[in-house]
Design a protein around this nucleic acid. Structure first.
Lengths: 234, 234
DNA sequence: CGTGTTTTTGACTTCAGTCAATTAAAGTGG
DNA sequence: CCACTTTAATTGACTGAAGTCAAAAACACG
């Protein structure tokens, strides 16, 4: 968790120590486990230590929309430490370790240590920025662009937390889950992935993705990483 | 601005006074004026005092996606007070009055007065919640549901700030702007609005919308107001 | 090795988009 | 207040991207 915050903020040794010293319980969760359910009033705020998870919402006809993807280090429901009830569910994509921190503790450290508070706030804002990009992705891009964009985002976020070998990673989602992320059907995701591979943008075997030419993929994916608000690289 | 924060938080007289005492300049802006442009590094954070505005992003083929709608009292770019550069543009939908507050001032008051900081943070979270709902709206709902949902959200948010006569309001957007909000084309928005009217859910003349039967519209719109995180009513 | 997912593929459908023309409204300047 | 222009709303005919349905092939795993 500290690592993640450091990505976008500077924190003193002391602040970092204070975060690590927060009382918490770690739980090991299996694949597809719910961490938070829509409507819950969680008493703990949790951080993903390892593994992947998603936030999702269910709409009237039973369809599901994934609204965020979480990677190790992400805080899963800072939202819920301040708002009353959860407007989404959080579910693991893989086996995962999750740290549960009492919500009061989060609130307390945020205001006792302004640098930590600011870091948390920045994290909240960066996450909101990603969600806005997703609105644009789902609302205004065609299927090929949309999926290419997701692949780029995933690669870049993995790299930011030093997981995944650059442009060669494992996407821990079924095609159905990808579909729920980009607002398409699983069948169409399948065809689109195949097309991206056929056109040479990526190679894939099972869930593994190899990005052959980052620049090309970023171009078809209309991907401009500014919205991730990561520290500048080239 | 104070009013808006009070909607979701309690603030002491003193805190409210401190907010009102923040140094700021008020500008009157015409329709379609840009307040922030994508890529800017704004030095001020602004609050909409009157009028309406939207945040939008432009995607590769020139299409536009509106990612947020702002009403009087909304802070337009709290984001930018903490992040480096803006990932969106903000443009007025109507004539508007905007208060510009130096970004350092926002940061300062947030940490000097924890109650204010918390209120600002809660506002950020509530806004993020709306954006998540929009991802689901655009990603997984059909055109009729999608537009009905927007009409419901607009009505409820207007009511929360005590503008608009309950279920009879003026939607300050062209059909093209509605299209950019819900991820459809203007032509299809036109047909869908007509259909909603033909089926008796709404009545409309020019931009005015009358919601005949809230319960019915909320049902076709798959609208559950929890995600707005407004104080409970009825 | 058998059962349940997940991925693929094909044939057909549909919702929403495109193009283009018409009508209506809203400004603008004299 | 009236022609003149521009912007917005409507409508119709046609197209197309993505969805649906259904079945087969490939994996995953006890």
């Amino acid at each position: 968790m500290v690592g993640q915050l450091l990505n976008r903020s500077d924190l003193s040794e002391e602040d970092q120590a204070a975060i690590l010293a927060l009382p918490h319980k770690v739980k090991e969760l299996p694949l597809s486990a719910y961490i938070v359910r829509e409507g819950d009033r969680p008493t703990h705020s949790c951080t993903l230590l390892s593994g992947f998870a998603v936030r999702h919402k269910v709409v009237v006809n039973g369809a599901r929309q994934i609204v965020n993807i979480h990677m190790p280090g992400d805080m899963l429901d800072l939202q819920n430490s301040l708002l009353r009830s959860s407007d989404y569910s959080v579910q693991t994509l893989t086996k995962a370790e999750v740290a549960f921190i009492p919500r009061e503790e989060i609130e307390q450290i945020a205001f006792e240590r302004p640098a930590v508070g600011k870091a948390l706030w920045i994290d909240t804002l960066a996450e909101a920025s990603i969600t806005r990009e997703w609105v644009a992705n789902v609302g205004r891009r065609d299927s090929k662009t949309r999926i290419a964009h997701l692949l780029c985002e995933f690669a870049m976020r993995l790299e930011a937390i030093s997981l995944g070998e650059q442009w060669n990673y494992e996407l821990p989602m079924t095609q159905e889950q990808i579909a729920d992320t980009v607002g398409l059907t699983a069948v169409h995701v399948n065809r689109t992935l195949k097309a991206l591979a056929a056109e040479g943008y990526i190679e894939r075997s099972k869930r593994a993705v190899v990005i052959n030419d980052w620049k090309n993929l970023a171009e078809v994916g209309d991907f401009n990483p500014l919205y991730l608000h990561l520290p500048q690289e080239d």
